[in-house]
Nucleic acid binder design. Structure first.
Lengths: 392, 392
DNA sequence: CTGTTAGCGCCTTCAC
DNA sequence: GTGAAGGCGCTAACAG
């Protein structure tokens, strides 16, 4: 026996579907809808195992419409101050958390940006990510971090997840395996802004944040030459990455500018794995005429190289001087401490997100890709310091 | 000059807002609304800048209903094989990516789990995260990684993001600052399963994955005693973390069991920052009667300690033996290499997610929290090895 | 086997 | 100022 909550009529009542486990009724007489617990439970809190409060909960607690709640929550101006306060208070009381899924659906905008990095075991990318978050969060964007484990397959899966999550934009650095770019061009096709940083692949007309790899390599190799090294090898990175090619070119140009011969034998390529770095290091040290210095494409490679050299009791830097790239924290801690090129990680992350937000928030018209090239700084430590006096 | 699409009138037209970049008009004469591209573009394909294909696009391309498409995509059994194939082909052709926002909304299930870690600069947590993903991804769950930067405030913000993202479950490790737990109990209130690992706070009735910190500390300190050390200090962690208390207790018990006195002076507490580790190290080394060994609560602290000791030309391990905890990769690379306790990181991550999925996928009834305690392994290196012979 | 319908939670007109 | 209604993209009964 159900009666209308307004007019009290019993006969004019019709069922009108079930909402949230409660039977919903319609009173034909006073044209109103109302709900009552099924089976007339003693108003059991109808708590499903997982229910987070919605604007509807706030609305019915306050006996107002959900539109009003929505407006109050968004800080619309044309709303009664009392109403707003009541809504805000109730929101706190019920511990309301907006449902980002629903919000994103309704606005066709997730207020989330994706970050794809090839790995995060070294602290290189984590520092960049922290910088990125420092810009993204204050701007009202969340960040979803994907790491590709240096695997192209995982990278592709990551792009799909971000696409499916309807992120508003993506900043990415690719794996050493990445040669094709279709998975990235999907972002462009979907109109999702993309910014590449550090490890980029050419062929994509997007904004980029880089460091001057050529200049960094040139500075590192020049430093080795100044230390008296004459047979300088290069432990190079994958050549599909611009970063690998630029650093190689910086190495070559430094040699050429100082009238040193270029010996193909002294250039070996590694695949970014520690095992491969060791193999390459051995190859160089096993040469009939081994190098007196090695410029490594990054610090992890340089560190593996140092390990191999130490295990052979090669004196560093006397017999072999070493320079790395990126200034991993570990480089300052190992023995001998590693000379390296520091990159402004924080700034890379921040700039990438700034470019991205600019593109996301630009209203109409085609976006002209931006590019920023940041400088590296040579950090001289024991691994390359043959002269007594530190350079002033 | 705009005219009504129905009656063709020109004077009865009024503007009625902009929808999707198109001007909307209202015809007073025939009471109808209609839209026209701004600036009367030549019926541009109405392609919004960002449109990703939906099941509706597939449906209309194939002239079937969207439910059929939905079923085909989900691999329902009761569907015509040809229809299925057509749908799947068209999905590929149109490069369909399901909208996870919509899917999550409809199912009240996001198929996403959140991971909260206090930092990811050291490789400790990244390795755990990789393990976690190895279980989560094959099970059909995505992972959203949040790092708290060792800040309680950020940690709270992270819990809110995960709550708002309607994650299906969370695994978490807290910051050194975390003392209150309300932000975590919100997950429980919302019925979202939570598993804590490593750095936990008591007071939450949730599943836990830990290592046997007491046992690890006990093994480390016992090793120092066996090396002949008699005045062993402890660079301890925050005592709000169970991990900090357990390791302290392991240290104390090892001393007691070997009849060594406990000197409160030899126990200093650090806040997980490098700066604080250095301060504490100095405090210990400045004592009138300095220690002959230090057991540090973790590797980063031990490494800072080694730096301070080296800067004072203290011979390690002869004058000062050092043991850390966690086996950071750097520990094997520094000089002297650091003795430490290795943790099964991969297994921690995997187990945490296994517990979580179990709880997520359990149908009804209260869930009985599980607990797993994994063992550590003592890795002996130069920093503590005073005797000539390596222990067999 | 397939189409129809009613939500999921929220925003956004439109109407009062 | 506020309410009602429609839609974002998808799933899930419910009919045929």
């Amino acid at each position: 026996m159900v009666k209308c909550i307004k007019c009290g009529d019993v006969d004019a009542i019709a069922k009108a579907g079930i909402v949230r486990g409660k039977q919903r009724y319609y009173c034909k007489r006073c044209d109103c809808y109302f709900s009552q617990p099924t089976h007339a439970e003693p108003e059991a809190p109808a708590l499903h195992r997982r229910h987070q409060t919605t604007i509807m909960d706030i609305a019915s607690a306050l006996n107002i419409s959900k539109s009003t709640v929505s407006r109050a929550l968004q800080g619309h101006s044309d709303i009664n101050a009392n109403t707003r306060k009541a809504v805000l208070d109730m929101a706190v009381q019920l511990d309301y958390q907006p449902n980002l899924l629903a919000l994103g659906l309704a606005r066709s905008r997730s207020y989330t940006i994706g970050i794809i990095v090839p790995e995060f075991i070294n602290s290189f990318f984590p520092y960049i990510i922290i910088g990125a978050q420092q810009v993204a969060n204050p701007a009202g964007y969340h960040v979803i971090i994907c790491q590709s484990n240096e695997s192209l397959e995982t990278e592709i899966a990551n792009t799909q997840v971000l696409l499916a999550s309807r992120v508003d934009g993506v900043i990415a650095s690719v794996t050493g395996e990445t040669k094709t770019l279709e998975h990235f061009s999907k972002f462009q096709k979907a109109g999702i802004p993309l910014v590449m940083f550090n490890r980029i692949c050419e062929g994509l007309d997007v904004s980029k944040v880089l460091v001057d790899d050529h200049d960094g390599a040139y500075k590192g190799v020049t430093h080795l030459i100044q230390q008296g090294c004459r047979r300088i090898a290069h432990l190079a990175g994958p050549q599909n990455l611009q970063i690998g090619r630029e650093r190689l070119q910086g190495y070559l140009d430094a040699l050429r500018d100082h009238n040193l011969p270029i010996d193909e034998e002294l250039i070996v390529y590694y695949d970014l794995s520690n095992a491969s770095a060791q193999t390459c290091a051995r190859r160089l040290l096993d040469l009939p005429q081994p190098p007196d210095a090695i410029f490594a494409v990054n610090d992890p490679a340089a560190i593996q190289l140092l390990l191999v050299a130490k295990s052979r009791n090669i004196r560093i830097p006397a017999e072999l001087a070493v320079v790395g790239f990126s200034n991993e924290p570990t480089s300052a801690l190992i023995d001998p401490a590693l000379t390296t090129l520091a990159q402004p990680l924080d700034e890379i992350g921040k700039t990438a997100v700034q470019f991205l937000l600019q593109e996301i928030e630009q209203e109409e018209g085609p976006y002209a890709p931006m590019q920023r090239i940041l400088k590296t700084e040579l950090i001289i430590r024991e691994s390359s310091l043959r002269t007594k006096a530190r350079p002033s």
